[in-house]
């Protein structure tokens, strides 16, 4: 029955169908990238450096004659894996944090939200920079930094739902029946926050893709030679006049992924949340 509803939404909403299709394609590329790519992304082809796009090298080659198309395909994995990691950590921590603050309430809630405010006083990318300053460049510090900065927002969403839910009669009933707070929080409060958590996650994913690419572009995230759209763009910037394709294709890859995800997210929220339909 749910599947039927999804199918009919896809049929009636072409924007949803196209963006969902693109997202699925990106995920498939991310998972199976190394098998799809025509070449090893780090294979150096002597004498073939800075070749423009051709039949042999669809998107051209870079400074060391590496196949840009293969590097982009394999780089998809870094873009999505990093962003998914940010979302999982962010939503996981935020949910637990928000549930505890919202369920306990009072002074604990107050202190926990103040700590959240402190984390929120950093723009996301700047927190990424701080984590790189502490732990050195790489994907992991950058992912953790971003997740921490997004966490208070997710926590707030869950917390405000939890505050509302804990005043509901069914929670009161559960309490009278002697259920443990943990059981009430997980079995009763959490399911009612779920749709908002999904919405939050869908927003953060797009931000995370952009911020991760930006940090790699600044040379602070994924380090070369591991192919990543951000660090490919940074390298391409050095030879933009000579080989503009090296910059254009990674830039388009980022834009198409983010656009597809933004449209998908917007349509998803429209279908999930009736109050958005105006």
């Amino acid at each position: 029955m749910r599947t039927a509803a999804v199918l009919s939404a896809l049929r009636r909403d072409p924007a949803l169908a196209i963006s969902a299709g693109l997202v699925v394609i990106f995920v498939i590329i991310a998972v199976f990238g190394p098998w799809i790519a025509p070449q090893d992304p780090n294979q150096i082809n002597p004498g073939s450096n800075y070749l423009p796009p051709s039949g042999d090298f669809w998107f051209g080659t870079d400074r060391s004659g590496r196949d840009l198309f293969s590097r982009l395909i394999v780089g998809t994995r870094m873009a999505l894996l990093g962003a998914f990691a940010v979302v999982v950590i962010d939503v996981g921590l935020g949910t637990v944090y928000g549930l505890i603050a919202g369920y306990i309430g009072g002074r604990v809630d107050n202190i926990m939200m103040r700590i959240g405010d402190i984390l929120l006083s950093f723009p996301a990318l700047i927190m990424g920079v701080l984590f790189v300053a502490i732990f050195g460049p790489g994907l992991i510090p950058v992912v953790v930094g971003l997740a921490l900065v997004y966490m208070p927002t997710a926590a707030r969403v869950v917390r405000s739902q939890a505050r509302i839910q804990t005043k509901e009669q069914y929670v009161e009933a559960g309490r009278l029946l002697g259920y443990s707070p943990l059981r009430i929080a997980l079995r009763h409060v959490l399911p009612n926050c779920l749709s908002q958590i999904i919405v939050q996650a869908s927003i953060v994913l797009a931000y995370a893709v952009v911020d991760l690419a930006a940090l790699s572009f600044l040379g602070l995230g994924v380090q070369p030679p591991t192919p990543d759209w951000g660090n490919m763009l940074a390298e391409a910037q050095k030879s933009m006049l000579l080989a503009p394709w090296l910059a254009i294709f990674p830039a388009l890859a980022i834009i198409i992924l983010v656009l597809a995800w933004n449209v998908f997210g917007a349509r998803l929220r429209y279908h999930l949340d009736p109050t958005e339909r105006r």
């Binding site: 933009m240 006049l241 254009i248 830039a251 980022i254």
Partner: peptide, 29 residues
């Protein structure tokens, strides 16, 4: 607005340099 929202500033900047500085030659890169 949905399109501009999906173009990160650094990609937009690089594409702008390619188009307006290198192809059209209007502005310094």
């Amino acid at each position: 607005t949905l399109v501009t929202l999906s173009v990160p500033v650094f990609t937009a900047g690089i594409l702008a340099i390619i188009v307006f500085s290198f192809w059209l030659g209007w502005l310094p890169p």
